[in-house]
Design a protein around this nucleic acid. Structure first.
Lengths: 216, 216
DNA sequence: ACCTGAACACCGTTCAAGT
DNA sequence: ACCTGAACACCGTTCAAGT
């Protein structure tokens, strides 16, 4: 007989996100979700056909946390900065989900909506459709790339405060032999700060500045 | 009694790289290496203490394929472009290793050597040590980020020719509903080409151009 | 239509034992 | 010092069966 689902897709999604937040990307498993659900592992396949489908859905779910209203900004630079900053913040808050972002979404509803919003801003600013798309992807590569390299060194669980991480990294760079790598060693302080939002904005500002001459 | 190793670390490393090239990052497993070695799984721990250590060693091994001699370039822009292009090519040739690059190396011999080379070029060009390090990281984030998003959509095995991949992507973007996402849909041709070296250079050129005003 | 039990073919890692 | 056998605690996924 027809029976009703015990859970909604949304509920399963939120459990998956909680697992990733608590234990990193590796903790987001079918069996882990099943345990949280109190069901057998294969019951999860009622809601998502594969582990990859579940992961893609989590990505688009998290992307929904980013503010996509770019219409209020008067120029494209501010709009791009706003979107990249918002995405950066959401990714930094969910480091366990970041590795999944690298693989996509591309075709999730929120992914398409955010892309469409950026393309509209760039069209209004006079970019060709071709240039607009290239600019959009460049921005995503930098933002997701930055978050991915940041998240990769975290163990799982809620991210420790930036101050503490910088301190630990400083200790690590202190171990680099000054005889062999003098320039690296003397830049240890800066390198320890690679994970900060200041470093993120350094690169972001350079990128946006450099995209400028592409405008007709 | 003391017995000699059956293999060198180098040989184990090359087996691991071959596994990643043939089957993607997921195929680079301790047990897979053991099978290739014709040994029990735990024999691999004679050569590397953990799976993570093996993966980090593979990353630095692959990084050794990149040409790090930047001294012959007359300006820093050309030097940066040369390094990024070389890294891009090596990463494109080993998509299965790219996910491991996101996690580091940072402290491998080749990683430190390449960083030191870039810092020297930027110092000679008049950058402060602080700016030089920031520029270096921005370049790495973009290059590794681009390769990671590229590699993520590949199944494992030798990468198919770019033409074929673009064609497949074009079909996928053709499925986006034009009523809801008209701008995305009309940029489908450009988006299908996100994986090309032309797209890589578009963003790279913008980035290098934008880093310019940071110079004193 | 949804869920369970049981199994298959995998993982990384550890421990005690052999040479 | 190096390697093996055996085990532990995991994976994703499939198949047949129950309600």
């Amino acid at each position: 007989m027809a029976r009703t689902r015990s859970y909604t897709q949304e509920q399963v999604l939120e459990i998956a996100l909680r697992l990733a937040d608590a234990g990193g990307a590796e903790a987001l498993t079918i069996r882990g979700v099943a345990t949280e659900l109190g069901s057998a592992p294969n019951a999860v396949y009622t809601y998502f056909p594969t582990r990859e489908a579940l992961r893609a859905a989590v990505v688009d779910h998290v992307l929904g946390e980013v503010d996509l209203d770019l219409s209020r900004h008067k120029d494209w630079r501010t709009a791009l900065r706003h979107l990249a900053t918002g995405l950066h913040q959401v990714l930094a808050a969910h480091p366990g989900v970041v590795p999944l972002f690298v693989a996509g979404p591309m075709f999730g509803t929120n992914a398409l909506a955010s892309g469409e919003a950026v393309l509209a801003v760039l069209r209004d600013a006079g970019f060709t459709a071709d240039d607009a798309a290239k600019v959009l992807y460049t921005l995503l590569v930098y933002t997701i790339g930055f978050a991915a390299m940041d998240a990769a060194e975290l163990p799982g669980g809620p991210p420790p405060p930036q101050r503490q991480r910088v301190k630990e990294r400083q200790a690590a760079f202190h171990g680099v032999p000054a005889e062999d790598f003098p320039l690296t060693r003397s830049a240890a302080g800066t390198m320890a700060r690679y994970i900060t939002t200041a470093q993120f904005h350094y690169g972001l500002d350079a990128l946006i500045a450099g995209l400028d001459p592409k405008l007709r």
